[in-house]
Design a protein around this nucleic acid. Sequence first.
DNA 1: TTCAAACAGGACCAAATCGGTCCTGAATCG
DNA 2: CGATTCAGGACCGATTTGGTCCTGTTTGAA
Lengths: 156, 156
Amino acid sequence: MQVTRAGEYGVLGLLHLARRGAGQVVMIDEVSREERIPKSFLAKIFQSLARAGLVRSNRGIGGGFALAKEPAEITTLDVIEAIEGPIAFQRCLEAPTECPHTGGCPLCGLFEQAQTQVRDVFSRTTLADLMKSRVPAAAPATSLKPRAPTPARAAV
Amino acid sequence: MQVTRAGEYGVLGLLHLARRGAGQVVMIDEVSREERIPKSFLAKIFQSLARAGLVRSNRGIGGGFALAKEPAEITTLDVIEAIEGPIAFQRCLEAPTECPHTGGCPLCGLFEQAQTQVRDVFSRTTLADLMKSRVPAAAPATSLKPRAPTPARAAV
DNA sequence: TTCAAACAGGACCAAATCGGTCCTGAATCG
DNA sequence: CGATTCAGGACCGATTTGGTCCTGTTTGAA
Ligand code: SF4
Ligand code: SF4
């Protein structure tokens, strides 16, 4: 039950591109250095992102990566699923499965519900939202404002 | 991003106890057979459940497991966390971490939000709810009614 | 035209996690 | 006592995670 490092690094990386401004071409090397992400690993991650069309790559001298869309058009769900594949809480929710309980299993519905919730959260938060929510450097970073604000009770 | 088999089997197993009626002592062997769960594996899972106080175990002839509380008092979150440990979407959300981004990371807030959502879904659904939602044997098992009904838009 | 910069892609790898199995031991009942 | 049932730990193979590295290919500039 975790977002993998790859997924997290992907969002962090794209966020870096977004902060550098629209259409700016930035090298893997800079993103890696500034965001403290292993370069080779980040390179692989950006490959997925490029294949998913979230980012455009240019080779050669002055090459690098640039966002393919507006930051407000890229949701964290796009990013995470481009890297990790579709979010699925259980095998029955991602492919027609041969699970022995499939007929009338009460759990499917529950897992589907949970899954929908997290996809919702991720799909309504864009890179632009994350940029805005960037807190200075201290204070609990707990106050994130997605486009459609949810109650989100404080204590878990 | 999946609930493990162990977690799933745990809920399924307890659900079986719940269906057998209050206080009923049932052997691992029966649960395993009826729910199609590998016996040795299920035994390990029930050990966690017993340690967490969700279930009481009795050894010897006529021994087995019985729910330690009412089905309506046991949430799926209890069960899953008893088995898998606390649900945490990222390392920063489960322990004071040495993540280089910790100061003012915009992602923490997002992950926390997603995590809260799934804990909410799981914590408001009890074994009793799951029993009620058991569909006959066909029809999409998508209609689960938790205690506090959520809008839950149909298409994802 | 050549060369160095920069990404593309695949092979590879260690470590952790998952999904179990198995064996010994202790409790309990008859 | 002895059969039964759980407790707990050791172990195991497969998969996933989190990377590294090496060989291209593309591109711009000298
Ligand atoms: S047990 Fe139920 S929830 Fe789990 S995979 Fe099978 S059908 Fe889906
Ligand atoms: S990068 Fe941010 S979200 Fe991820 S672990 Fe570090 S602080 Fe938490």
